[in-house]
Write a protein that binds this DNA or RNA. Structure first.
Lengths: 194, 194
DNA sequence: GCCACAAGCTATGTCTATTAGCTTTCAAGC
DNA sequence: GCTTGAAAGCTAATAGACATAGCTTGTGGC
């Protein structure tokens, strides 16, 4: 299939992600990847356009993994149950991979259709989960944003060690979930009155 | 006072912050700062230990500015009103300086007492604002975390352009604030029953 | 068995941070 | 007013990063 060492774009991304998981995105360097791959640094350019391109591929992969995770968590559940499951899955993913937070917070460049579609997809899962609440379109957008913002913010602060105090973080997250479910329910109820 | 060009640590940080605001934290380089300061790159080491130290000083300054902003917003208000004002101020700061998000999400190194104190201070403002709700200590911690997570998450996603859809972001934030105020109120009420 | 191309390589250029050591300027003390 | 000392600048040099150019080699298809 390919001459010499069987390196592929996928393999390069996988190695890069290893480094990110171990030491954070700022520690990612082509030299380190090359070393792990057992290859000279310029050889990587056969599989990846450059460091910027590689970072983009990492983001793409993380976003898609997150979408898949959320989709899995949401299937077979509905309403408040589904919202809670979504929140738990999002947090769990970022607890498992604390250094991937940035990949989920950086917006795609305009013109990057592939990454745009991927990020859209994660919002789409939340959107679908909120459908049974009976929002109209604009309200569903607002509610999705709130849900995503709160859960992402929590997971990010937790992942970056931002919660210094000794109080149980899991309990804090339970409170957040309750607030969200209640808030979304109330928002839906308020809507139906008019 | 000082020989030659009046450069100080403060001035270096200010120039660095300019670059961060214009082009983002990843674009920050000592070479660029030196150019703007009209100085050779190694001269910066007379005012700053190195790039890592400079980044830390930037974080410190941003965190302190945010604390001050929040404190100002909260003074003279109470309860739900104060919570909303805090949220608005947080979001407004990050709208004004969208590329400073990272400075507010990175946890200080253990052993960095100065930065730890500073980050603690921003949580402290939220903590104070929640006092009138009558939480016990642990609950106040949970509520503070929720408030901070939701508002920070929203502001970050907005700042990084994560809200792709055309629906009004301000309106989404109003929904979030309502959810938070209501959620915090409910959480306080539930507590008092026992 | 040959050939084309993909996937490696080495060499090189440019940019970065950082250290070492020199020079200059200001200002304080006599 | 001169000296002197330290702070703040400089140049030179090292090491490591990304990136490009062009060469070499192995492998799969015919």
């Amino acid at each position: 299939m390919s001459p010499r060492a069987g390196l592929t774009t996928e393999a390069v991304v996988a190695l890069a992600l290893e480094i990110v998981d171990e030491s954070g995105p700022e520690a990612l360097t082509l030299a380190k990847i090359a070393e792990r791959a057992g290859v000279a640094a310029p050889s990587l350019y056969k599989h990846v356009k450059g460091l910027a391109d590689l970072r983009r591929l990492i983001d793409l992969r993380v976003v898609r993994e997150m979408t898949e995770t959320l989709r899995t968590a949401a299937t077979g559940r509905e309403g408040a149950d589904a919202v809670a499951a979504l929140a738990d899955a999002y947090r769990a993913y970022l607890r498992r991979h604390p250094r991937r937070t940035q990949a989920l917070a950086t917006a795609p460049d305009r013109g990057d259709a592939e990454l745009s579609t991927a990020t859209h997809a994660v919002a789409e899962v939340a959107f679908a989960v909120l459908r049974p609440f009976g929002f109209d379109h604009a309200q569903a957008v607002h509610a999705t944003r709130c849900l995503r913002a709160a859960v992402h913010g929590f997971a990010e602060l937790e992942a970056s060690g931002g919660f210094g105090r000794p109080e149980d973080v899991g309990q804090s997250f339970e409170v957040l979930k309750t607030m969200l479910v209640q808030g979304i329910t109330d928002y839906a109820r308020k809507q139906k009155k008019h």
